[in-house]
Amino acid sequence: MQSPIVKKTVAISNPQGLHARPAELFARLALQFESDVEVIREGNRVDAKSILHVLTLGASQGTELTLQAHGVDAEDAIEALVRLVESDFATDETMSQESPS
C-alpha cells in the first residue's frame, strides 16, 4: 500500500502571528509523526519539524498556510496540526506571560 499524501489549508488567527512559542509547539507536535510534514506559504515550502524553518514563514495573523504530510500517519499528522493551529495554539500562554504588568 502506498503511503498517502494529505493536505489541508489553515489560517493563523493569533494576533501575534506564528511567533517563537507557537512555532515550537507546532514543530514539537509534527515531530511526533513518522510522516514528512511540510508547511507551504505561497509556494515557499518548509519542514514542519524545524522551528527555524517554520519561523522563516513570518506568518502573521490571517496568513493562510497549507500543511502537507506524506507517510503512513499522514492523516493523523494533518488532523493534529490543523487542530493545534485552529485552537490558536491552545497552550500558548506566551503572550500573557511576556507582558509584565
Binding site: 501575534q16 506564528l18 511567533h19 527555524l52 524553518h53 519561523l55 522563516t56 513570518g58 502573521s60
Partner: peptide, 17 residues
C-alpha cells in the same frame, strides 16, 4: 508591535537557514 518582532524572527531564521 508584534509585527516587528515577527519580522525580526523571520529575518533571523531565514538568514540562518
Amino acid at each position: 508591535r508584534p509585527g516587528d518582532h515577527l519580522r525580526a524572527l523571520e529575518n533571523i531564521s531565514r538568514q540562518l537557514r
